[in-house]
Write a protein that binds this DNA or RNA. Structure first.
Lengths: 190, 190
DNA sequence: ACCGTAACACTAACGGTTAGTGTTTTGGAA
DNA sequence: TTCCAAAACACTAACCGTTAGTGTTACGGT
């Protein structure tokens, strides 16, 4: 069945809150805008805002599931018989490209400018690493231990985080992935 | 010169606050004890408490510099001509042993039981990784790029975090370090 | 003996978050 | 169509961690 009127209204409210928040944050800075202000501007109650978003930071990372899904799909949806690591390397290249360089979203600039947001993002990525580990564990091919899968997943997340802060992000991705590939190969020979 | 009365008093106040906080946290749970309560029980003002500790979580990780120093010293203070990675592996073995198993501190149990504390610890370790990266970069032997050093430092921190959550922590340390050693070797051949 | 400074205290607030308590809207059952 | 249970929404009032502002001691060095 198609989404009913109720769900559409709910989605609209959520979107209006997110849009309003992002606009205010970009206009005047993340720290300078309070939750009460966002709620007032979006014309909802504070409690309504928190029924749609778990925290103030979550307003900024509205579509954080994108990141998670892109990673797991890079594993599960890659071409048949394509090795795992090159596929992940390609995906990280793209993701790093989205948030670095001259043409980067102003949103990413804002995130990089606020320690609170950077920290929130890091712990969010850690959760994503668990999904990635699950996807890797379910992958056919040479079996790995659960620990090895979790380890590689975290290494991949590290690659993303480290490359973002490097002078030449794209080169850093390649450099780090050389190390990750070696680690991955070693995990198959234990 | 020996520490004067003033510094002794300051240290005593700090210690009293930390002891009181830890006692209350263990008695009734971290989340169930408020800052105002800790301050009252330690007989100091709330502002005084925050002049000694940057946050509520910092009360629990009072001696977090230990961890940082142990890691950097495992690098800088190891036996001459001993390879880097085995030294780090040994240190991680010890550190993981401290907070797992039957005889683990009740403090570690409390940390594992509170998401807020676990998250705080993770971001603390990330800061430690930077120090470790610096120590590794300054190490003699085959030179590595700054990116490679940071990467390996993060991998080592990952080993600690992952091993703590594994079924057999000590075995996990060894398994993960096999992968780290491979990554480290690969970083020297780029 | 004195002064600058650092520790400490107190009040009052700020900002994020939640509990408690209704009120409206809506999808589906009768 | 009518009615109900659930879900979204609103409002007040608070809680909690944290900080600014403003003093007040107490100490170490001169």
């Amino acid at each position: 069945m198609p989404p009913g009127r109720r769900e559409r209204k709910k989605a609209a409210t959520r979107q209006k809150i997110a849009d309003t928040a992002l606009r205010l944050f970009l206009e005047r800075g993340y720290d300078a805008v309070g939750i009460r202000e966002v709620a007032a501007e979006a014309d909802v109650a504070v409690t309504t805002l928190f029924s749609h978003f778990a925290s103030k930071e979550a307003l900024v990372f509205e579509q954080d599931e994108d990141f998670e899904q892109r990673l797991t799909r890079a594993v599960t949806g890659r071409a048949p018989r394509e090795p795992l690591m090159p596929a992940l390397r390609r995906e990280i290249h793209v993701l790093v490209g989205h948030c670095t360089g001259e043409g980067a979203d102003p949103v990413w600039r804002m995130i990089d400018g606020s320690p609170a947001l950077r920290e929130y993002e890091e712990s969010m990525r850690l959760r994503h690493a668990e999904s990635l580990a699950t996807a890797i564990a379910a992958d056919p091919g040479p079996a790995r231990t659960p620990t090895a899968c979790r380890t590689i997943a975290r290494f991949v997340i590290d690659a993303y985080a480290l490359a973002r802060g490097a002078a030449d992000p794209q080169a850093a991705v390649d450099e780090i992935f050389e190390m990750i590939e070696a680690a991955w190969a070693a995990s198959g020979t234990a």
